[in-house]
Simulated scan of single mutants.
Amino acid sequence: MGTITPRESKDGSTAYKAQVRIRKGGKVLHQETKTFERRQAAQIWIKQREAALSHADGLKAALQENPPVKDMIKRYIEELGKPLDRTKKMILGQISGSTLGEVKAAQLESSHIVGYMRMVDVAPSTRGHYLAHLSSVITLARPAWGFPVDSSVVADARVALTRMGLVGRSRHRERRPTIDEMDRLMNEFGKVRERTPDSIPMQELAAFTIFSLRRISEICRLRWDDLDEDGCRVMVRELKHPNTKAGNDTWVDLTPEALRIVSAQPRDDDRIFPYRPLTASTAFTNAVQFLGIDDLHLNDLRHEGASRLSEMGWTIQRVAAVSGHRSWNTLKRYTHVRAVGDKYEDWKWLEVIAPLRNQAVLKS
Rank of each mutant, 00 (worst) to 15 (best):
D71L: 12
V120R: 13
G101E: 03
N66W: 05
E102P: 00
R127W: 10
M90C: 11
S96W: 06
P83N: 08
L108G: 02
E109A: 07
E78C: 01
V69A: 05
K88I: 08
G81C: 06
G128W: 11
E109D: 04
K70T: 03
K82D: 07
E102C: 01
H129I: 09
R127P: 03
A61K: 13
L100N: 07
R127L: 14
L92F: 01
S111D: 14
I91V: 15
A106W: 02
I95N: 03
I113A: 06
L63G: 09
G115D: 13
R86D: 15
L84Q: 02
E78N: 08
P83Q: 10
Y76H: 10
A123T: 13
L108N: 01
Q94K: 04
E79K: 11
L92V: 03
K89S: 15
I95A: 04
M117C: 14
T99A: 15
E78W: 00
L63H: 02
S125H: 11
L100Y: 03
E102Q: 13
R118T: 00
K88N: 09
G93V: 04
V122P: 01
K89L: 15
P68F: 08
Q107M: 14
P124Y: 05
M117Y: 03
I91Q: 02
E79W: 00
M119Q: 15
I73F: 12
S98H: 06
P68C: 08
V103E: 04
S110G: 07
E109S: 11
P68L: 08
M90D: 11
H129E: 07
V122W: 00
P124G: 03
G97A: 09
V122H: 00
T126E: 02
H129K: 14
D71P: 00
E65W: 06
K88G: 09
G81Y: 05
M117N: 02
H133L: 02
M90F: 14
G128E: 11
R127G: 06
G101V: 06
S98C: 05
V103F: 05
H129Q: 11
T126F: 04
L92R: 05
A106R: 04
M72E: 08
N66F: 10
I95C: 04
G128S: 12
Y130K: 06
D71Y: 06
T87W: 05
P67C: 07
H129L: 14
G81N: 08
K88V: 10
H133W: 13
A61Y: 01
K104M: 03
